[in-house]
Design a protein around this nucleic acid. Structure first.
Lengths: 357, 357
DNA sequence: TAGGGTCCGGTAAGCGCTTACCGGTAAGCG
DNA sequence: CGCTTACCGGTAAGCGCTTACCGGACCCTA
């Protein structure tokens, strides 16, 4: 009864070596494709591995190699409402994360994800813990201040998404400026709307600041009237967008002919609020979004928006990080192109033909 | 120039010990809250940690502790179209994953995620690799056969989602049967529809089989006519749902008064197809979904469906896995309750009042 | 003041793997 | 037939951390 079957306990490379009648070094070499083991040796090892269904322990490999083959991704989750099925913020981040994952897979990396709640204290601690488990980190928008990033950065390589580059980190984003300008031109020139509004995102978001600035500058260039100001401040959420409309209307303001929204979620909220007040889209007020999240095409009317290549954004973020991990250099600010997606909320006729799959 | 600042290279516990003038054991003890270090010792260690912004290496800890504090999640991603912004399957899995993540966080675990494409070979290899990096695995629907699971299971603890329990693994799912029966009753009894159809999901999915069976049995109990058969076979995707309708119509079949769909995605496709043929929902044909993904409420008309507590499903899956990891036992089949969400696609009047946030 | 009990904190082993290094065997050559 | 060269494969060190074990310092009691 001392050793009838096995000592159990997770298998190690020693068990495999025993079974195959070789040394652990040989097992390791075969498994890594290093050196040039004799054909017979390889066979025996592989057979033993198969028979025992052995898998090397990732932690031990990481420790020995100095490479975990894991990248951490960290982002904020909605709010308290998370558990009530709220959809805020869901899509956008998840789509990007999938892009990261696809990119990572190509290099044999896996994604370690971790979210923090809006009111979490000790965000830095959570991030640091993640850093210890990964070879590099990808931070979504607004996770950490520049100094926070700097401190982190001499622990592990950092890439931020939709943030701003810092001396210590690389940033990946889409061409916000081009997108907004295209939207403004479509509204002001193609449709001839003379009054425009912009429902902003969170005011501390770099993406949002760029968008707002581009909006004002392009609208001015087009000679359109512009509505901005504190009443137009949203927060990237549907509720935020709805609020802006509600308070504008409650204050007796007249809405502009067309409203650009900081992102699709906001546009969704805006359209809901408009609907509740009996204001028609696009007949009374034209609406546009930004992002082209999957749901955008299912809204009523389908949302005209800017498509961010979200998957690619993620994949690129990973690739950039990967080369950093391997001591590679590269640009500090990577910008991906966007595309104008015309549907109906801007006032264009039924675009089903173009949208049909 | 031999050691002006530091030898660089990632910090270790030795660097901290040096700086604090104590031994590595003390550093470790302070960091883990083990033993009872003198106040002064604790202070010095903490200060050194802060000054160096030191973070323990996760791999080394994992190796030493025999606990990685990581759970792996694996799922299939859509298809080739992934990169074209297709939304198939997105929501459902992502929402569950977030639930897992929230649950994991409570225990100090992180999520290691990995997807496999539909046509990937070597799925087992990918899963095994993941297993090596995690303390346990959560598998989404249809990742592995029962024998595959059995083999995996003596490597790490396994929990499946929406699958079937096996001797070696635990399964977590929602109460499909109850949900479908509630839907059928609502359609057959409350609305009095006498002919019903069911557009199925993938035929190899346990969830789908249960739903189909419940549909037939409850419809029979209600004395309604039932349309089933090979022409009604979908695959959980919007395209699949649309196809069913197209081919039914092309074959000159008459549609039943109400159609239940295996999930919301399918319902979405069905509604699109119906719309293209000029068939009104719910006036001509009533439609229902299953899942209540976030987009369901934004469809036209808003979709009547069954709400799965998706976040909770995920959180529960984690919790179950966690207790397994800690040698705990527990039920092999965990079932969570569902809820009937009545909106308008079933023929009920505008339900905005109930749905308004 | 000596013996015994408490606490702290240091030393060192070991977690499972990779790999530098080295010794042994076989093949090649003169 | 003896020596060189090549090629495998084994031994052991070390990755960064946790913790069992042990010894020293200090305090209390007799």
């Amino acid at each position: 009864m001392a050793e009838p079957k096995k000592a159990k306990g997770p298998l190690t490379i020693y068990d495999v070596a025993n079974r195959a009648g070789v040394s652990i070094a040989s097992v390791s070499r075969v498994l890594n494709g290093q050196g040039s083991p004799r054909e017979e040796t390889r066979e025996r090892v592989m057979r033993a591995v198969r028979e025992l269904s052995f898998v090397r322990d990732g932690a031990a490999r990481a420790l020995s190699n100095g490479l975990k083959e894991v990248v951490g991704v960290i982002f904020r989750r909605g709010g308290e409402q998370l558990l009530e099925g709220e959809d805020e913020s869901f899509l956008y981040i998840d789509v990007i994360n999938r892009g990261i994952e696809v990119g990572a897979q190509r290099r044999g990396f896996d994604l370690l994800i971790s979210s923090v709640g809006f009111h979490d204290d000790n965000v830095a601690g959570r991030i640091a813990a993640l850093a210890g488990k990964a070879d590099g980190l990808i931070l979504h928008d607004r996770m950490l201040s520049a100094v926070g990033i700097a401190r982190l950065a001499d622990m592990v390589p950092i890439v931020t998404l939709a943030g701003s580059p810092t001396p210590a980190s690389i940033n990946v984003r889409c061409d916000n400026e081009f997108g907004i300008r295209a939207l403004v031109r479509h509204m002001a020139i193609d449709h001839g709307y003379r009054s425009l509004g912009y429902v902003s995102g969170r005011s501390d978001s770099p993406d949002n600041r760029t968008r707002a600035r581009a909006f004002e500058s392009e609208a001015a260039a087009g000679g359109a009237d512009v509505d901005v100001g504190p009443m137009w401040e949203g927060n990237y959420s549907a509720a935020g967008g709805a609020n802006v409309i509600e308070s504008l209307l409650d204050a007796g303001k007249k809405l502009p002919r067309a409203i650009l929204c900081a992102n699709d979620q906001t546009a969704l909220g805006v359209m809901h609020a408009l609907g509740r007040r009996g204001i028609r889209v696009p007949e009374d007020v034209a609406i546009t979004g930004f992002d082209d999240v999957p749901v955008a095409r299912h809204l009523h009317p389908p949302l005209t928006t800017i498509r961010q290549p979200m998957q690619e954004l993620g994949a690129t973020a990973f690739e950039v990080l990967y080369s950093r991990i391997n001591a590679g250099a590269g640009d500090a600010d990577v910008v991906l192109p966007v595309e104008l997606i015309i549907r109906e909320s801007c006032g264009c006729g039924n675009a089903d033909a173009k949208e049909a799959k």
